[in-house]
Design a protein around this nucleic acid. Structure first.
Lengths: 212, 212
DNA sequence: ATGCTATCTGAACACACGTTCATATCAAGC
DNA sequence: GCTTGATATGAACGTGTGTTCAGATAGCAT
């Protein structure tokens, strides 16, 4: 018995990806079998190969599509003027976007090592592109004397690590609302890099003295 | 041919754990076979069972021993007076300790889900104990008006996420020295939670006005 | 009603898995 | 030198793996 009513490629295809995402996130790529994925979809294992050439592609497609989504979404995000406001926008965007897709984020940072070298490299490039968006903000802020950052590359990674951490404990029905979490994190990020007022005053003072 | 010269339990046991650690960190628990571990040690798969009851215990023992090491090391660490200095000590300790054991840290945060429920729970308790050390510092700092933290629990997790992130990019022979990384991170952590001076002044002002 | 094609089944392939165990080998104690 | 016990082998067990494929089924076009 094949081809049940209304069961088409357009339906099964997405369901395969959804099942793979769910199971990879829960148990890890290596620990999930094609038969488990098939069972989740309600199909035999052989049928999966109508929708993916192999297991590895199933993982890679999920990761690549996710990263593309992140990049597109950040591209589309309305950006305010000035590094300080932009950093807040980035922090809030990152938290919100990632909390809305916890499983994709999870596998994106967990399963990279299960990718074959070529696929790994492709993903790494996309990730670096995203990191550069944040580093650009930090650099501009530093040039304008608004941020006090020792090393922009390192700080970028530190901030992203911090923001990513949210996915490992946040529960939608937990103690804190999404809006609250957004605020707290973007606050911490801002404070971690902002030029302290006393340092700014000192800088101006020194500039004055040097001019005399 | 068994029992080669000088080949004893005292030698092979640690070598088994070392091989398991190395391979689990590189490819993930589920993706590593007992035969691979045995090959790394230079022994047949069957011999591993003289040193571990099963594969799961191999993982759990690694994770538990690591967490115990962390807890003991922090216990032994000399702590200065005052939350501000203590936070710096904690940050520096965390960075240093974890960068010296990148593989153990990696599997500690990656392979938790491969633990059976009981083992998972045991590990979670140890981890919470460590987090409480940091949260204690934040709480005292907040009580003394030195820190400006919205939610100590959330901030604890955010800081630890940030500090942990270092393990995913740091290379011992890279651009930045361990000492430099320590400084940058502990600096960011401090700034992220410290009470800003203008806010402190405002607080004192308001207290004065309320007294009138 | 018939044929066509997209969709799926179910069995099979070769291989790898974790684990067990009878057997062999060596180092040390008497 | 012989026995003993710790340490290892290597084959085997049953189960599960990713993947392939001939054949079955069902909806659509004619």
């Amino acid at each position: 018995m094949a081809r049940k009513t209304g069961s088409h490629s357009d339906i099964t295809g997405p369901r395969v990806r959804a099942a793979a995402l769910k199971l990879f996130a829960a148990h890890g790529f290596a620990a999930v079998s094609m038969r488990q994925i098939a069972a989740e979809v309600g199909v035999q294992a052989g049928a999966l190969y109508l929708y993916t050439p192999d297991k590895q592609s199933l993982l890679f497609d999920l990761l690549r599509d996710h990263m593309q989504e992140v990049l597109d979404a950040w591209e589309a995000e309305e950006k305010p003027e000035g590094p300080v406001a932009q950093l807040e926008t980035f922090s809030r965007f990152h938290i919100r976007f990632h909390l809305e897709r916890p499983e994709k984020v999870f596998i994106s940072y967990m399963e990279l090592r299960n990718l074959e070298p070529d696929n790994f490299e492709a993903l790494g490039q996309m990730r670096r592109q995203y990191e550069n968006a944040l580093e650009g903000i930090l650099k501009r802020g530093q040039d304008e004397g608004l941020f006090d950052v020792d090393d922009t590359k390192l700080t970028t990674l530190a901030l992203i690590s911090m923001l990513n951490g949210v996915t490992s404990w946040y529960k939608p029905d937990g103690r804190l609302s999404l809006a609250r979490v957004e605020s707290i994190y973007s606050d911490m990020a801002g404070k971690a890099v902002r030029m302290p007022r006393w340092k700014e005053r000192q800088r101006k003072l020194e500039a004055k003295q040097a001019a005399e």
